[in-house]
Each structure stands twice: as C-alpha cells, then as structure tokens.
Lab assay of single mutants.
Amino acid sequence: NQASVVANQLIPINTALTLVAMRSEVVTPVGIPAEDIPRLVSMQVNRAVPLGTTLMPDMVKGYA
C-alpha cells in the first residue's frame, strides 16, 4: 500500500504548504504520493483543507 499526503493541520485556502502541515499515511482513496512531499513545499492549496484530509492533485496549485 502506498502512503499518501494527509493534512496534519487545517490548511487555509491559498496557504503555502510546509513540512509541518503534511504527513504521510496509507489511506483510501489514494491521494498525492508521500514521496512528493518535498515537491509540495511552498506550493499553495486552492481550497481549505481540513485536518486529516488526503491531499488530491487538484487541491494543489501547479501540482497536476
């Protein structure tokens, strides 16, 4: 099972992602792969992401 990126805190809309804001977890459905965490740092989310939410490619500006 592949680990996905999960919000480690509430991430407000247009907030730049940080290492502290993300964690890796095996979840269903699978979201952005955990190995992409370094690439996600400083990218912005295009919606509010609640704690525990799996990050999907369409939630991160410039990711997809």
Rank of each mutant, 00 (worst) to 15 (best):
Q44D: 05
M22N: 00
A34R: 04
P50W: 06
Y63R: 01
N46C: 10
T28P: 01
R23I: 06
R39S: 09
P12I: 06
L51D: 11
G52P: 01
I11Y: 02
A34D: 06
A7P: 01
L55C: 04
E25I: 06
T15R: 08
L51N: 11
L19C: 08
V20T: 15
V30W: 12
M56F: 11
A3R: 09
K61L: 10
S42M: 13
L19M: 13
I32W: 01
R39K: 14
T53G: 09
V20Y: 15
T53P: 01
L55E: 03
I32A: 00
T18P: 01
Y63L: 05
P57C: 07
E25T: 07
T28L: 10
V26M: 11
S24G: 11
T53L: 10
L51Q: 13
V41L: 12
R39D: 06
P12Y: 07
R23P: 00
L19P: 06
V6Y: 02
M56K: 07
M59F: 10
V45W: 00
M22P: 01
Q9K: 13
E25F: 07
L19H: 07
V45P: 00
K61G: 06
A34F: 05
V5Q: 00
A3S: 10
A16G: 08
S42F: 09
T53W: 15
T54E: 03
L51V: 15
Q44N: 09
D36G: 04
N14G: 14
A7S: 08
P50E: 12
N1E: 15
G62T: 06
K61P: 08
A21N: 14
S4G: 04
V49D: 04
Y63N: 03
V49F: 03
V27Y: 03
V45T: 09
S4C: 04
N46E: 07
I11G: 04
A16N: 08
Q44I: 14
P38Q: 11
A48S: 14
P50R: 10
L10V: 11
A16T: 10
N46Y: 08
I11M: 05
Q9T: 13
A64P: 09
T15Y: 13
E35S: 13
S4N: 00
M59S: 01
I11F: 02
I13V: 14
S42C: 14
L17Y: 00
T28N: 13
A16Q: 14
A3D: 05
Q44P: 07
T54C: 05
T53C: 11
N14H: 13
V26C: 11
Q2Y: 15
K61E: 11
P29Y: 04
E25A: 12
A34Q: 04
P29G: 02
V41R: 03
G31P: 00
S24F: 08
M43K: 08
V45N: 00
I13K: 14
P50F: 11
V41Y: 00
V30A: 12
V26E: 10
S4R: 03
L51A: 15
Q2N: 15
V60L: 07
E25H: 07
V26L: 13
Q9Y: 12
